[in-house]
Simulated scan of single mutants.
Amino acid sequence: MAWVFVTDAQQRKAVPIVRSLGRHGIQVVAGDSTRWSMAFFSKYCTHWVIYPSPTETPDLFIGWLIDHLKHNTYDALFPIDEKTLDPVTQHLKELCKYTAVPVVDHSTYMKARDKGQTIRIALENDIPCPKTYFVSDVEEVRALAERIDFPVVIKPRQSQGSRGIVYVQSRSKLYPEYCRIHERYPFPLIQEFIPPGGEALGVEALLNKDSEPRAAFVHRRLREYPVSGGPSTLRESVHAPDLIEMGLRLLKALNWYGVAMVEFKVDPRDNTPKLMEINPKFWGSIQLSIVSGIDFPYLLYCVATEGDVTPIFDYQVGVRCRWLLGDFLHFLSNPNRFRLQPSFFQFWGDNLHDDILSRDDPGPVLGMFVSYLAQAFGRKLWRDLWR
């Protein structure tokens, strides 16, 4: 009987990952640092465990994880988010003594997380990017402001979602805004602003240990929250072989192993897809690729345990998947909410799926609400209520 340990069970993407593995007969143990984690409530979660916070106490987390793997037999470990990937990749050799861990080494992982390094590697491999300015001294920004076109985007080298991203409309605002972001995210990038009107697309891929592509998939964003830029709330599978080629070219240049998503945005001025960033882990919209025919979690398990898998690049196009709660927030904050295409009120359809909602496995929805209640009331009060 096969066993896999999946971390970050509170993350929305943990639910389809746990379901995927469980539906293939794999016993899944899910872990997180909070008891009220969505994936714990899935019927495909065989057991759940609470571990020390990987962000607040990374040394305690790694010590706990090594001890847990020593005393329990797993076929693979899936660290699925930055919180756990950071310490796991740093201690990869030690962890691989006890189970298969299908991720890259820490140096490669950090190259993919650092947007500056990603852009440099992309340019070396003829992959289109927004015009980017690399700053090594904050005072350089004063002179830079006099010779570049506006608006521009200040973008942290490492951050999640839209955190730390600032749009600057005028020369006088660039230096103070840059200094403000620099205090929290040292030496952020300055990039040209790609105007609205072009599609946002993601190339999702799996590569084996020899950095050979074994699966690839493309989606386009239809809606996101926040409306100005953030996680997708509705997205659709599309056919884009040229984009897949560019995404795989970049990942192979990094000698990638495992899963990742390469994000592009089409510049409406020249209709060219330009690189935004690499998401060096499982992505939030993983459910879409699964229901479209490419089961990345199970394929990753096969690569980790068997060494390789038969390549799969065919999938159904026109499939849509939504994160209902996020889409509701988009609806509330979008002034054109009643003119959205497709309509927010389209809840059913043969090719419409949801990240979390499932008649087969309704538990994670309950887990989601319990989790939000726990956060709303605060940890201490919640513990007092359940003594």
Rank of each mutant, 00 (worst) to 15 (best):
S159R: 06
D126R: 15
P156N: 03
A145W: 03
N125Q: 02
C129W: 05
A122N: 14
A122T: 08
E146R: 05
R163K: 15
R142L: 00
V152E: 01
E124W: 00
I121L: 11
I148D: 02
V152P: 01
D126I: 04
E140W: 03
R157I: 01
D126W: 14
R157S: 07
R163T: 11
Q160R: 08
V166R: 12
Y167T: 13
I119E: 04
Q158E: 08
E124T: 01
I119W: 06
K131M: 06
I127W: 03
D137F: 00
A145R: 08
R163P: 04
V141P: 07
Y167E: 10
Q158V: 14
L123W: 08
F134K: 03
A143C: 09
I154K: 04
R147S: 12
V138P: 02
V135G: 10
R142E: 08
I127F: 13
I121Y: 03
I127Y: 07
Q158M: 11
I154R: 00
P130F: 13
T132S: 10
V135W: 09
A122E: 11
I154S: 04
A122R: 09
K155Y: 07
P128M: 06
N125S: 03
S159N: 10
P151S: 12
C129Q: 05
Y133W: 15
I148V: 11
C129K: 08
G161D: 12
R163Q: 15
R163I: 15
I148P: 03
G161R: 08
S136Q: 08
R120F: 04
Y133L: 01
D137S: 08
G161Y: 12
A145S: 13
A143V: 09
F150I: 12
C129I: 04
I148W: 05
V153Y: 14
R120Y: 05
Y167S: 05
Y167M: 14
I127N: 15
T132H: 04
T132A: 09
V152L: 07
L123K: 14
I165A: 15
V168K: 00
D126S: 10
V152W: 01
T132P: 15
G161F: 04
I121T: 07
A145Q: 04
G161V: 09
P151T: 07
D137R: 02
R120N: 10
P151W: 13
A145H: 01
D137W: 02
F150A: 07
Y133F: 12
P151R: 04
K155M: 03
A145D: 02
I119C: 05
C129A: 14
V153A: 10
A145K: 02
A143F: 08
Q160P: 00
R147Y: 09
S136G: 07
A122K: 11
